[in-house]
Design a binder for these strands. Structure first.
Lengths: 255, 255
DNA sequence: CGAATCGTTGATTCAACTCAACGCGAGTGG
DNA sequence: CCACTCGCGTTGAGTTGAATCAACGATTCG
């Protein structure tokens, strides 16, 4: 199946949304037909969210796990002085709260960034499948582990890189993840975030994000049109962002 | 079993070190006797490490998973300009690289902070137990998920909190984790890190850590003697550090 | 005792923040 | 259809929190 066919499947909303999830899980593992059938047999609800709408709030009790079928989603925490830190940005194909397969209380907020469609499963039943089909369990656990690796890189990014490097790193990560998810080439993509939101993801102010993006543009590394990014010089951007994709474990094929 | 008895078990090196792991896993779940027996039957090696010694280097192939039986361990990544970011600090009772139960290549370094003793298992056999005994699988997966939650809080801490808040937060987290692990009360504990290492964990320089710790001390929130910390005013420190322990999910009892 | 490491302190610099103003495009309502 | 608002991006000027640079004291250890 061609890379971009996924988008078409999703475009047709009536197409089984669980296909997107199956595709994701089989990115790294073969799943047997019985396992796939079991996943397809999961009860689920499909929900649409408007930009900014809360999918989940910190402190809430949760009994379900969600998956992005369309749109962008982000996760954030609020600190004491009112500041916000975005801890993750999710594309189509990402699990957004796999942790709630076991954790019963949300420790952060999840919101739609753009209009977004999510599939939600009863956490208990998904967990159950993880144990009845070890291949499913492995695939889901692996998703958790790679997400954790991405958080580690996030700590490094905001902790030890300056604004320019940090920003370039984020652009690289999104480009590579998008490409790996089969959503299009890394050379040019939509980045539907305000500069304020980018700042909240990078631990910077919107003003400084603005200046930093303009610097990267002036250096010929990227081009910008509205909220889309064109990577003008991938190798240059990669170097500027101190980016190596090892932590995404894209080529992980356990066994 | 009393809280501090764990230390004694560990002190007697001949006592089965796997007991420490069993204790950790049963902190949240009951494990059946067959599951416990299976864990106790795992082949393992016990290794001592000197301060600073590498347990694992970024880029290495890994086939095993480790657990801290004694001492302190930290995990770090190095950035392009030579800076280091410590992404996690581990106490006795913590898994330090549970991710290698499935990820075959290390994406960061793991080093001993103090003299430390680790138990190492063949990853494959541990994974195998996770599927033969769903209770074990759940307990291990849950550890991964909570670790990820800790990384998220780490992103928030370095991304959106100032030096004083950040530092107080770290002190609170270590106090609470130590207490939860049954290693002693939160009021006073050893923090066997140089100010340089604290800085690398917080995204600060050692000079600024020094000034910040002195500020916290001058404010009457902590007292310091060598590398031990006494929390003089827990509620004050908690507030200074914008600390709430929800993200540690200490009272998580799924089902 | 000498070397090395770590903590402490002061002086200075700088990266990022704050505050403020203005332009622009997309809605929206009269 | 135009005036208005509102959110967002842009830019400048001034401030500040943390870094840098540098020196020195304390402690440990061979």
């Amino acid at each position: 199946m061609a890379d971009y066919e996924v988008e078409q499947i999703v475009a047709r909303r009536e197409a089984v949304p669980l296909e997107v999830m199956i595709r994701r899980l089989t990115r790294r593992f073969e799943l047997s037909q019985p396992a796939i059938d079991a996943l397809l047999g999961l009860p689920y609800t499909l929900k649409d969210f408007a930009p900014g709408q809360y999918i989940l709030r910190e402190g809430e009790q949760v009994q379900q796990s969600s998956f992005v079928v369309a749109g962008f989603v982000y996760r954030s925490k609020i600190v004491g002085d009112g500041g916000r830190q975005i801890v993750a940005i999710h594309l189509m194909g990402d699990f957004v709260d796999l942790q709630h397969i076991m954790l019963r209380r949300a420790d952060h907020n999840i919101q739609a960034l753009t209009p977004a469609t999510l599939v939600q499963f009863p956490a208990e039943q998904l967990l159950d499948l993880a144990y009845r089909y070890p291949e499913i369990g492995k695939a889901l656990w692996l998703e958790s582990l790679i997400e954790a690796a991405t958080f580690r890189e996030g700590v490094v990014n905001v902790g030890r890189r300056d604004a320019r490097t940090r920003t370039a790193h984020l652009l690289c990560e999104l480009a590579v993840r998008r490409e790996a998810a089969g959503l299009g080439p890394r050379g040019s993509y939509e980045l539907p975030m305000s500069q304020e939101q980018i700042g909240d993801a990078l631990g910077l102010t919107s003003v400084h994000v603005n200046r930093t993006l303009k610097t990267l543009e002036a250096e010929g590394l990227i081009a910008r049109t509205k909220r889309a990014v064109t990577v003008a010089d991938w190798e240059g951007l990669r170097r500027a962002g101190d980016f190596t994709p090892h932590y995404l474990h894209l080529h992980q094929k356990p066994e």
